[in-house]
Design a binder for these strands. Structure first.
Lengths: 146, 146
DNA sequence: CTGTGTGCAAAACGTTTGCATGCCT
DNA sequence: AGGCATGCAAACGTTTTGCACACAG
């Protein structure tokens, strides 16, 4: 996602309106690496702009996504997350606290076997690294009993 | 997921009952590489066992998952898919028809940069290869206009 | 016979949509 | 002044839950 100033210009050039609600959402997303859900964004913006509705949050996220300014990402099946970092990158996911962090390192795309390449042409790829973040590491012995 | 015969023994040893509904679900899942959703399974089993309910499908899948016999996988945020192949593997996903196929090849886990390893200990990883399957390849020129 | 499994209906959950009103430009 | 944005409420699709009845063990 570009800087707020540029984003405002982009909106104006597309005849999209700048409202306090939208500006608040822009501010929350700018530089945000926490992969917030719509609900996270909604609760955060309520601190600043208490009368905002869920609908507006969703609709603004939809506009930003359609402009290619944010990505909707799927990690677990329970909800969608939004990421203002639109350059391709990978993620680490803590299996205990579900924290998602970015991996901006670029890796060579692993080479698919020939039988698959006969039937499928990959254009990009995404790696999810599962494991434990430092806070959760060491407290995980009991996971196997779940 | 193990073979149906072994699965039946496993259920019996855990005092879990074998019902025609459960057996039907086992049969649909055995060797299934199509990553069916609960709805897919429900519709397929209805051909054989027309009075089965969605509830039973979900509850049986839950039991199988808790036994570690199937995995619940997340690809898009709209629904969950079930995979009887519980050995770690990767997937190809066609961006046009959403078909998911298995990649059983093993790759070396890409090495995370030191700054990340300080904060996160990976234990396994999953790669999603996005692209187009043969059927869809060549019909994708118009995607950029969406 | 006992208790787990089934199936209905309803609730829950995140997300989307229709529509009247509000307000940015 | 015009039209896009907002916000409410209701609809939506998927999954979960409560409860009475059925049936596998």
């Amino acid at each position: 996602m570009r800087k707020i100033e540029e984003l405002v210009n982009l909106f104006k050039s597309r005849e999209l309106k700048i409202t306090p609600q939208r500006l608040g959402i822009f501010k929350i997303l700018e530089g945000n690496t926490s992969h917030p859900s719509a609900e996270n964004i909604f609760h955060e913006i309520r601190h600043i702009y208490p009368m905002i509705s869920f609908t507006t949050v969703y609709k603004t996220l939809e506009v930003l996504e359609s402009l290619g300014e944010i990505l909707k990402i799927t990690i677990d099946g329970t909800r969608k997350y939004y990421d203002p970092n639109t350059t391709p990158h990978h993620h680490t996911i803590c299996s205990r606290c579900n924290m998602i962090a970015d991996v901006n390192e670029e890796f060579d795309m692993p080479r698919l076997p020939g039988e698959i390449l006969d039937k499928f042409t990959p254009s990009n790829y995404h790696i999810s690294f599962y494991g434990n973040c430092r806070e959760c590491f060491g407290e995980v012995k009991d996971v196997s009993t779940i």
